[in-house]
């Protein structure tokens, strides 16, 4: 008895010493330090690659910088670039085209992806392969997508003209040949670009919605059906409200991507014919890399940035309201 209490008295100081940790121990075992160290690589990457160029771009919107007139250098011009933009007809045309392209593309992507996701949410034999097939366009490089679709729309060997020709041959004899250059027609070019955008963007929306549908609890749907809801009512009043956060995320990401999408439309039409598919990213490219007017390209970028920032803030606040409502 006495021995053990003496032992306890002896160990107490040692016990205290071990739990008054050194500075180094606290540094290496602190959750705050570990949290910062873990997030540092990602943050530094984004600061270096994204934040710095953005700040530079926003700053250049207030300067005149013409690479073809290098002797003028970089001059501070205040709001002159913004004044130029207000009078620049092509900007308003491109803004109109961009908004049209984004709204129509995102809406139809969502609508079609919702139908397909609902059809493929419940398992049947071979569902994995069918789902896998529906996300294939995501895996095809942009350059291949543009090339194949240009071929599909092409007047000489395009699939669309071939199908019309086949039907025409059945109707009016074997010599019928349909030739129409879809992407060179200013009335159809935008529609063509929208179709390609939907085709290419569909897989991501489909996957997100499918994942969202699969993680919904089954109980609410079952309850609705017991209460006598038909398929449509069950979808509209039970499934859709539960999916709202997922749909919001899909809309945010797709709106941003489509609004900023440069390479696909550039490779498909280059903004033509007669500026029918001129969108803001193409306008930026033409100002910066064809006309070499960095200041003016920056002011267009700044406007795009502000539009997207406002939209994203609006969508995110919607989502936050959702979270509070629960």
């Amino acid at each position: 008895m006495a021995e053990s209490s003496a032992g306890a008295a002896e160990t107490r100081p040692a016990f205290r010493a071990r739990h008054t940790p050194s500075f180094w121990y606290r540094l290496t075992n602190s959750e705050a330090v570990l949290a910062l160290v873990c997030i540092a690589p990602a943050t530094l990457l984004l600061l270096f690659i994204l934040a710095y160029p953005v700040i530079q771009t926003l700053a250049f919107a207030f300067y005149s910088r013409d690479l073809l007139k290098a002797e003028l250098g970089t001059q501070f011009v205040g709001l002159a670039n913004f004044a130029w933009l207000l009078d620049y007809d092509r900007f308003w045309l491109a803004l109109q085209n961009s908004v049209l392209l984004t709204v129509v593309t995102v809406f139809f992507e969502l609508a079609i992806a919702m139908v397909v996701a609902l059809m493929l949410a419940e398992p049947f034999r071979g569902v994995g392969i069918v789902r896998g097939l529906f996300i294939l366009p995501w895996a095809i490089p942009t350059i291949v997508t543009a090339f194949v679709w240009r071929g599909l729309f092409s007047p000489r060997y395009g699939l669309i003209n071939q199908v019309i020709s086949e039907v025409g041959r059945l109707v009016s004899g074997p010599s019928y040949q349909f030739q129409f250059d879809w992407l060179s027609n200013s009335a159809f070019a935008m529609l063509g670009v929208i179709i390609v955008y939907i085709w290419r963007g569909f897989p991501f929306v489909f996957l997100v919605l499918l994942a969202g549908l699969q993680s919904l609890p089954q109980e609410l749907s079952d309850a609705a059906r017991i209460d006598g809801a038909n398929g449509w009512k069950e979808f509209w009043y039970v499934t859709l409200p539960q999916l709202k956060p997922v749909i919001l995320i899909a809309v945010i990401l797709r709106t941003i991507t489509v609004f900023n999408w440069f390479d696909l439309v550039w490779l498909l039409t280059g903004g033509g014919p007669q500026n029918a598919t001129l969108v803001l990213p193409i306008l930026v490219y033409n100002r910066a890399f064809v006309a070499f007017q960095v200041g003016r390209a920056s002011v267009i970028t700044a406007v795009m940035f502000v539009i997207l920032a406002i939209l994203t803030y609006f969508f995110l606040s919607q989502q936050r309201d959702e979270e509070h409502a629960r």
Binding site: E31, A32, L34, A35, L36, C38, I39, A42, T43, L46, I49, L50, P53, V54, T57, I252, L253, I256, T257, N260, F262, L280, P281, V284, Y285, A288, A297, S298, T301, M304, F305, L308, A309, T312
Partner: peptide, 25 residues
């Protein structure tokens, strides 16, 4: 998982990185 106020502050704007048009950067 790690609790630290600065991390919450850093994490929010991560998805905002996508509003940067790639043509311009």
């Amino acid at each position: 998982r790690l609790r630290f106020w600065a991390v919450k502050f850093l994490g929010r704007p991560f998805l905002l990185a996508y509003i940067v048009p790639s043509v311009m950067i």
